[in-house]
Amino acid sequence: MRSLLLAAAVLSSGQLMAQDETGTEVPALEERLANERNTYENPFVMTPHKPNYILLGNYNDNLPEDIYAQYGDLQDTEVKFQLSLKIPAWVSKSKKLGLLFAYSQVSHWQAYNKKESSPFRETNYEPEVFLSWRPDYDLGAGWNLQLAQFGFVHQSNGRGGDLSRSWNRIKASVAFEKGNFGLGISPWYRIHEDRENDDNHDITDFLGHGKVQAAYKLGNHTFSLMSRNNLESGFSKGAVEGSWSFPITERVKGYVQFFTGYGSNLIEYNHYNTTAGVGIALTDWL
């Protein structure tokens, strides 16, 4: 959390904001939310939810061989990609309040492992439904409350037996902005299951009860940092993920991602590793 606050102080000091057609500067988060609202009435458009990217090479320093014994020899460099979209089911006339459905999928693909027929070693599926409200409330000192959400999230890896992992959550989130710096805080409550039917009863010990996401846009470059379960676990079972996207073409960005900690995916929720990858992104946080 201290690192996020330091980033906020440093990054918010120098801002290069986009401009609208009148030449007025528009903060990055406000610009994204406005662009999203403009798509809500078009039935042929699905809006990005989380970043959409593919890491063409993603190095993992500590694959848990016991979990993946059925796959034989796995390579420590693979492909990782995320698909994340949302659509509105209902939107108010002001477009400030809406009910949305979202779907995200993260896959880890042994694409270069010809010895083992290039298996998908893990895929996580995450449908959610949530109310979204855009208050656009001035908090003073240059800060704005831009977004508040509340809803239900399911996440699973679609497997059975000993490899099954899943959990359900009630999640809230708020997003603040100051210039081109955005800060999101997302607490959640896990909906508990019967112990005998629970594949991962201790998952909140490792994934915690929320996360903090910071993002900053500098020109056409976007930097983000996620912190999860670090303070809550006393820095013993948390995770940090950082990313940087930069322009390649008008629609395609270069993308670099770094992760260290627990829970890089569901089947490894209680396993510590560090990953680093490079690839391309179609959309980012800002």
Rank of each mutant, 00 (worst) to 15 (best):
F130N: 06
A89W: 12
M226H: 01
V256S: 09
E250C: 00
E41K: 08
L147T: 00
P88M: 10
L145P: 09
F81L: 12
D136H: 09
L33H: 02
W133M: 13
G98R: 01
G161Q: 04
V45S: 04
Y40E: 15
E25D: 11
D66K: 11
Y272N: 13
K80V: 15
S118M: 11
V240I: 15
I203L: 14
G14Q: 07
E268M: 00
P247R: 01
D136N: 14
N60R: 03
L16G: 01
G263T: 05
N144Y: 05
Y189N: 10
S264V: 03
G208F: 07
L183T: 09
F235V: 10
K211I: 02
N42C: 05
V79R: 02
G160K: 04
E25V: 02
D199V: 02
S243F: 03
K211Q: 14
K80E: 15
K211M: 13
A239M: 08
T123G: 09
N265Q: 06
V91G: 08
Y189W: 14
G238V: 11
D199R: 02
Q149R: 13
S3D: 15
T47A: 11
D73T: 11
F235K: 02
L231W: 08
Y255A: 08
F152Q: 04
H154L: 11
P64Y: 00
R251V: 12
L4R: 00
G182L: 07
N60K: 04
P64R: 03
E268I: 01
D199A: 13
F258V: 15
R134M: 14
P64N: 15
S3N: 14
N52S: 08
P119T: 06
G182M: 12
P27N: 02
Y216R: 05
V174K: 02
R37I: 00
L145T: 10
N197G: 09
I191T: 08
Y189H: 13
P135R: 04
S84P: 06
K237I: 07
I170V: 15
R169C: 09
G219A: 04
E31Q: 12
A7S: 12
E78Y: 02
S245P: 00
A214D: 12
F101V: 06
V278D: 07
P43D: 09
N113I: 06
Q155I: 15
F206H: 14
L63N: 06
G23L: 03
P64F: 00
D73H: 04
E116F: 00
G72S: 06
H221S: 10
N62W: 00
S92H: 05
V256H: 03
G140M: 04
L145F: 10
H154S: 10
L147R: 06
E126R: 10
S84F: 03
L6T: 14
L183E: 07
E128S: 15
G158S: 11
Y125C: 07
